[in-house]
């Protein structure tokens, strides 16, 4: 099974690898893992408290090429979106974009979970209910 060109591209030139300050109020961190294959993925977002726009997104993934490509693509896609828009990203969108074969679909699931976990962490930090639309009180 060969990786698609897009997977290879993301694997060789991963976008947005790195770390954001975990303790910052504006940063949400999602750490997820796939117990069946032993992959682990961390995705972080930095959200503008006024606009709810994700201004920064970073990831670090220990896993196969598809897992790295999925998280790399996820950070590209969520940057510039509002938190609510980012939640609309589905793993199937990632599968389509990267042409992932069926055995690698779980990598895209992991990336979607990572986005959700990061946003969930940010919401928790900022006192937004998990299911409520993100409406943080702007800085006083």
């Amino acid at each position: 099974m060969a990786y698609s060109d897009k997977v290879v591209d993301h694997y060789n030139n991963p976008r947005n690898v790195g770390t954001l300050d975990k303790s910052s109020q504006e940063v949400g961190t999602g750490l997820v893992g796939a117990p069946e294959c032993g992959d682990v993925m961390r995705l972080q977002i930095k959200v503008n408290p006024e606009t709810q726009v994700i201004e920064e997104a970073k990831f670090k993934t220990f896993g196969c090429g598809s897992a790295i490509a999925s998280s790399s693509l996820a950070t590209e896609w969520i940057k510039g979106r509002t938190v609510e828009d980012a939640l609309a990203i589905k793993n199937t969108d990632i599968v389509k974009e990267l042409a992932l074969p069926p055995v690698k679909i779980h990598c895209s699931v992991l990336a979607e979970d990572a986005i959700r976990a990061a946003i969930g962490d940010w919401k928790k930090k900022n006192g937004v209910a998990e299911n409520a639309p993100a409406a943080v009180e702007s800085a006083k």
């Binding site: 796939a34 117990p35 069946e36 294959c37 069926p102 055995v103 679909i105 779980h106 699931v109 979970d113």
Partner: peptide, 11 residues
């Protein structure tokens, strides 16, 4: 539900 065949499922 363990093993590779379950890796696609939401855990």
């Amino acid at each position: 539900e363990i093993g590779e065949e379950h890796s696609g499922n939401r855990q």
